[in-house]
Write a protein that binds this DNA or RNA. Structure first.
Lengths: 355, 355
DNA sequence: TTGAAAGCGGTACCAG
DNA sequence: CTGGTACCGCTTTCAA
């Protein structure tokens, strides 16, 4: 297999009876005008005849730019990340940039080694979608080494956003999303609600939690019955565990509505309800987050918060391109708004005696 | 941002007071033994002090190997593909190989240009998960250019599998999966069934269709009420369209069970049933394919066929590594078996008069 | 054990 | 418009 070695530019040049330099010019659109019509044709013919394909490795070494960007993502199995990736790809493809995608599975050490590899491969820029709250110092330092765009996950304080230093960032307003969820529940009449929080080492969940609390503070009559615990990972199993904990309480201290930080956690909550002989939304309402595929076909269809993931990828791509082009005047911090999607997993609470 | 240029080996060498060649040897584990204990320490200290990171581009150019493989996938939004990718990544990561992932969105031209780019980047091997039936000649030729592993999708005839030429392949037995689905339905008592086929330019769907027909041929009393049409893409909308077509028939010519080639198509069928005022499984049973995330939480939970996607990725990775190592004696064709997952979207057909 | 030098496959500057 | 040449950063033979 893998037949004889790929032809080199040198071979193409010899074939066309010209010097390598001339062949290079003839094939490079940016300077074809420096070459006579005639030789250009001969070189291109030779190139086609030999099936020549420029060695990107050699080009990179010479030009100091690889035409690749690194994309560091927590988990490709998460369709939300896949969608961001597609947005990024869409945004950079017509510039001929190739994304190198690496997964971290949410291990900070893997994140660092992934970045190290990308750096070794001399990517022109890095998009980091897998930051943890503890990575702040590292990320800040990294941004001094390579053009960096922080996507999806950031750090509470804006890292020099707007100013020239620190990474650019494209985030979504998780505080707003959480507020929308709480307002919806309160509007339906719920007075005892609880959140099922995601892992607090991830900024999205920190923000959702604080949005939740802030919204509750605006509604004095509403009680927060959240337990102290959070999901270690965003999974159905963890959702089941968290919800079961809450549902095992005596009825009076049991929430009538649950705000899950993630759709899978919400699905786990639905399982727990069923296991406890409770019905959704009749006994307990449930809200998810992300609008995962098929969440509209669950039993019941899940009320959730949709993130503009594809667009987020697109905006990220734009910031990357601007960074590569050395554009300085553009905004270096973008905040996208989520969209609240009411479906059938939420309804007014059952009428009852007591507060 | 992007501070002063990354340090080179030359700089490390100067810093340590040795020649570049010596520095190279001191940092390369494979030949550290050629260097004195003392200088090795000095070089490594200098390397650490400068924050040196070997330029993989230069290494690649010199050694002729990039430590990267290309992975061509139809669509990352499909969790099935994401899972295969993880299997591949898992299988190659300890060898320090980086996968370059490119999406084709099932456009054959994009597939070719994606492959061309990967070839330009001098990947050491290519995994093709996005082949169409019409790509056979192209793929056969490609396999002569670069070590190639065909995953998930193949071509009806084994392309020189087992022999030395043609691509290696890791497929799953779609015929078997379709048979399992049909046998399940017939076992439940269904006598009028139909399939909702996926796009026939993709081998998986061709195989599922032929498995379906073969299984029906084994059950003479069972009628195939499939329409001639197929889904142009595997989506809920297409499933809805196909199913609606079938359900618009008069009751006697209407199937009591549907075998969809894909879970999303099956979900569309569930929608169509609901829209027609029919219930699943009471009026019509539905089977999907792939065991998509949350398909177990649908209304009703979807009977489906699970593919060993992660393992498929792992086997693919193994074949890639063997190809890179020049192993010749290993099997070059792997066929994995699917697992039938009965859930609540299938049941015995409603008792009725007539055949 | 270390240094010298060639060269991987291109690009780009300088002459002519 | 074309040829000559240096060089990107590293690895690897060959000598010393």
């Amino acid at each position: 297999m893998s037949g004889s070695r790929a032809p080199t530019l040198r071979e193409v040049a010899r074939h066309a009876g010209v010097h390598v330099a001339t062949a290079s010019r003839a094939l490079n659109t940016a300077q074809q005008h420096l070459v006579s019509e005639d030789t250009r044709a001969r070189v291109q013919a030779a190139s086609a005849a030999l099936g020549y394909r420029a060695n990107a490795v050699a080009q990179s070494l010479r030009t100091g730019t690889t035409g690749t960007i690194g994309v560091v993502v927590a988990d490709l199995a998460n369709p939300f990340n896949a969608s961001i990736l597609r947005g990024i790809e869409h945004g950079i493809q017509d510039r001929g940039i190739l994304p190198l995608v690496v997964e971290t599975h949410d291990h900070p050490e893997r994140m660092r080694s992934a970045v190290a590899r990308l750096l070794g491969n001399r990517v022109d820029a890095i998009v980091l979608c897998a930051a943890h709250t503890g990575d702040e110092a590292y990320v800040r330092e990294l941004a001094r080494t390579v053009p960096l765009v922080l996507a999806v996950r950031g750090f509470g304080l804006r890292l020099g956003a707007g100013s020239g230093d620190g990474p650019a960032e494209v985030l979504q307003d998780d505080v707003l999303g959480a507020r929308a969820a709480v307002d919806h529940l309160v509007g339906l009449g719920h007075r005892r609600i609880a959140q099922l929080p995601g892992n607090p080492t991830i900024s999205s969940f920190v923000e959702r939690a604080s949005g939740y609390r802030a919204a509750l503070a605006d509604h004095p009559g509403v009680h927060d019955l959240s337990s102290g615990s959070h999901a270690s990972e965003s999974s159905v199993a963890e959702g089941r565990r968290l919800a079961a904990e809450l549902l095992s309480r005596e009825a009076a201290r049991r929430p009538t509505a649950l705000f899950a930080h993630n759709d899978l956690i919400a699905v786990g909550a639905l399982d727990a309800l069923r296991a406890a002989g409770l019905r959704c939304p009749d006994d307990v309402s449930v809200i998810g987050y992300n609008d995962a595929p098929l969440s509209d076909h669950l039993d019941p269809p899940l009320t959730t918060v949709r993130l503009p993931s594809f667009e987020l990828g697109g905006r990220t791509a734009r910031l990357v391109l601007e960074a590569l082009d050395g554009v300085r005047e553009s905004p270096r911090s973008v905040m996208l708004s989520p969209e609240f999607i009411p479906r059938r997993s939420t309804s007014a609470p059952r009428l009852e005696s007591g507060s």
